[in-house]
Amino acid sequence: MKKEIKFHLNGEEVVAEVEPHWTLLYFLRNVMKLKGTKEGCGYGECGACTVVVDKRAVNACLYPILEVDGKKVITIEGLSKPDGQLHFIQKSFIEEGAVQCGFCTPGMIMSAYALYEEKENPDEEDIKEAIEGNLCRCTGYIKIVQAIKSAKRRQQ
Protein backbone atom coordinates (compact mmCIF):
# COMPACT_ATOMS: atom_id res chain seq x y z
CA MET A 1 0.00 0.00 0.00
CA LYS A 2 3.06 2.24 -0.21
CA LYS A 3 2.77 5.56 -1.95
CA GLU A 4 5.40 7.78 -3.48
CA ILE A 5 6.27 11.22 -2.25
CA LYS A 6 8.73 13.79 -3.45
CA PHE A 7 9.88 16.66 -1.31
CA HIS A 8 12.87 18.72 -0.25
CA LEU A 9 14.63 17.64 2.89
CA ASN A 10 17.36 19.95 4.13
CA GLY A 11 17.83 21.29 0.66
CA GLU A 12 17.97 17.99 -1.15
CA GLU A 13 15.22 16.33 -3.12
CA VAL A 14 13.94 13.13 -1.62
CA VAL A 15 11.81 10.62 -3.48
CA ALA A 16 10.51 7.87 -1.26
CA GLU A 17 7.98 5.11 -0.98
CA VAL A 18 6.08 5.56 2.26
CA GLU A 19 3.32 3.88 4.20
CA PRO A 20 0.33 6.23 4.40
CA HIS A 21 0.04 5.93 8.18
CA TRP A 22 3.58 7.03 8.85
CA THR A 23 4.23 10.34 10.46
CA LEU A 24 6.97 12.66 9.29
CA LEU A 25 8.83 11.86 12.51
CA TYR A 26 8.72 8.14 11.83
CA PHE A 27 10.02 8.72 8.34
CA LEU A 28 12.86 10.98 9.45
CA ARG A 29 14.05 8.74 12.25
CA ASN A 30 13.45 5.27 10.85
CA VAL A 31 13.78 5.65 7.10
CA MET A 32 16.16 8.58 6.67
CA LYS A 33 17.92 7.67 9.94
CA LEU A 34 18.02 11.30 10.89
CA LYS A 35 18.08 10.90 14.66
CA GLY A 36 18.42 14.56 15.52
CA THR A 37 14.67 15.07 15.65
CA LYS A 38 13.52 13.57 18.94
CA GLU A 39 10.33 11.94 20.07
CA GLY A 40 9.45 13.21 23.52
CA CYS A 41 5.81 12.22 23.72
CA GLY A 42 4.27 11.39 20.34
CA TYR A 43 1.18 13.47 20.98
CA GLY A 44 2.23 17.00 20.10
CA GLU A 45 2.51 17.94 23.75
CA CYS A 46 6.26 18.52 24.19
CA GLY A 47 7.72 19.93 20.98
CA ALA A 48 10.86 17.77 21.00
CA CYS A 49 10.08 16.66 17.44
CA THR A 50 9.69 20.16 16.03
CA VAL A 51 10.80 20.53 12.42
CA VAL A 52 10.10 23.28 9.91
CA VAL A 53 7.77 22.55 7.01
CA ASP A 54 7.41 25.35 4.48
CA LYS A 55 8.77 27.82 7.00
CA ARG A 56 6.41 26.79 9.77
CA ALA A 57 7.39 24.96 12.95
CA VAL A 58 5.33 21.81 13.33
CA ASN A 59 5.29 18.71 15.49
CA ALA A 60 6.67 15.99 13.23
CA CYS A 61 4.99 13.36 15.40
CA LEU A 62 1.56 14.57 14.23
CA TYR A 63 2.45 15.35 10.64
CA PRO A 64 1.15 12.79 8.13
CA ILE A 65 4.01 11.84 5.86
CA LEU A 66 1.93 12.15 2.68
CA GLU A 67 1.29 15.81 3.49
CA VAL A 68 4.96 16.68 2.98
CA ASP A 69 4.72 15.85 -0.70
CA GLY A 70 5.97 18.87 -2.62
CA LYS A 71 7.01 20.74 0.50
CA LYS A 72 10.30 21.91 1.97
CA VAL A 73 11.29 20.29 5.24
CA ILE A 74 14.16 21.44 7.42
CA THR A 75 15.39 19.45 10.39
CA ILE A 76 18.13 20.13 12.90
CA GLU A 77 20.56 18.33 10.59
CA GLY A 78 19.86 20.93 7.92
CA LEU A 79 20.81 23.95 9.97
CA SER A 80 24.57 23.83 10.08
CA LYS A 81 26.55 24.14 6.88
CA PRO A 82 28.18 21.04 5.38
CA ASP A 83 31.59 22.41 6.39
CA GLY A 84 30.42 22.24 9.99
CA GLN A 85 29.72 25.92 10.42
CA LEU A 86 26.89 26.30 12.86
CA HIS A 87 23.77 28.37 12.42
CA PHE A 88 23.79 31.48 14.58
CA ILE A 89 21.00 30.09 16.76
CA GLN A 90 23.03 26.96 17.41
CA LYS A 91 26.05 29.05 18.36
CA SER A 92 23.95 31.11 20.66
CA PHE A 93 22.51 28.06 22.43
CA ILE A 94 26.05 26.83 23.09
CA GLU A 95 27.43 30.13 24.29
CA GLU A 96 24.51 31.17 26.46
CA GLY A 97 24.40 27.86 28.33
CA ALA A 98 20.96 27.02 26.96
CA VAL A 99 21.80 23.33 26.67
CA GLN A 100 21.76 20.86 29.52
CA CYS A 101 20.55 17.34 28.82
CA GLY A 102 19.98 18.49 25.26
CA PHE A 103 16.96 16.38 24.42
CA CYS A 104 14.65 19.34 23.90
CA THR A 105 17.39 21.30 22.16
CA PRO A 106 16.87 20.32 18.50
CA GLY A 107 13.13 21.04 18.73
CA MET A 108 13.76 24.24 20.63
CA ILE A 109 16.25 25.41 18.01
CA MET A 110 13.89 24.56 15.15
CA SER A 111 11.14 26.62 16.77
CA ALA A 112 13.59 29.48 17.10
CA TYR A 113 14.71 29.00 13.52
CA ALA A 114 11.11 29.26 12.27
CA LEU A 115 10.72 32.40 14.34
CA TYR A 116 13.75 34.01 12.72
CA GLU A 117 12.41 33.03 9.30
CA GLU A 118 9.27 34.95 10.19
CA LYS A 119 10.72 37.90 12.08
CA GLU A 120 14.07 39.54 11.82
CA ASN A 121 14.11 40.99 15.30
CA PRO A 122 11.87 38.98 17.57
CA ASP A 123 11.16 40.38 21.01
CA GLU A 124 10.72 38.39 24.20
CA GLU A 125 7.00 37.95 23.60
CA ASP A 126 7.63 36.55 20.12
CA ILE A 127 10.20 34.17 21.57
CA LYS A 128 7.84 32.91 24.24
CA GLU A 129 5.11 32.44 21.67
CA ALA A 130 7.51 30.51 19.45
CA ILE A 131 8.67 28.06 22.11
CA GLU A 132 5.61 27.81 24.34
CA GLY A 133 5.05 24.34 22.89
CA ASN A 134 8.61 23.18 23.61
CA LEU A 135 8.97 21.70 27.06
CA CYS A 136 12.33 21.75 28.81
CA ARG A 137 12.87 20.13 32.18
CA CYS A 138 16.45 21.21 32.81
CA THR A 139 16.96 24.91 32.30
CA GLY A 140 13.95 26.80 33.60
CA TYR A 141 13.94 28.36 30.08
CA ILE A 142 15.83 31.48 31.14
CA LYS A 143 18.98 30.75 29.20
CA ILE A 144 17.00 29.43 26.25
CA VAL A 145 15.07 32.68 25.92
CA GLN A 146 18.32 34.57 26.34
CA ALA A 147 20.01 32.46 23.66
CA ILE A 148 17.25 33.09 21.14
CA LYS A 149 17.16 36.78 21.99
CA SER A 150 20.88 37.25 21.56
CA ALA A 151 21.23 34.91 18.60
CA LYS A 152 20.99 37.66 16.04
CA ARG A 153 24.24 39.28 17.00
CA ARG A 154 26.03 36.04 16.26
CA GLN A 155 24.88 36.15 12.67
CA GLN A 156 27.71 37.06 10.37
Binding site: L34, K35, G36, T37, T75, I76, E77, L79, S80, L86, Q90, F93, I94, V99, G102, T105, P106, I109
Partner: peptide, 9 residues
Protein backbone atom coordinates in the same frame (compact mmCIF):
# COMPACT_ATOMS: atom_id res chain seq x y z
CA UNK B 1 28.95 18.43 24.59
CA UNK B 2 26.73 21.35 23.56
CA UNK B 3 27.92 21.37 19.91
CA UNK B 4 26.81 17.74 19.54
CA UNK B 5 23.49 18.52 21.14
CA UNK B 6 22.64 21.63 19.10
CA UNK B 7 23.33 19.79 15.86
CA UNK B 8 21.30 16.73 16.73
CA UNK B 9 24.38 14.50 16.72
Amino acid sequence: DAPLKVTGQ
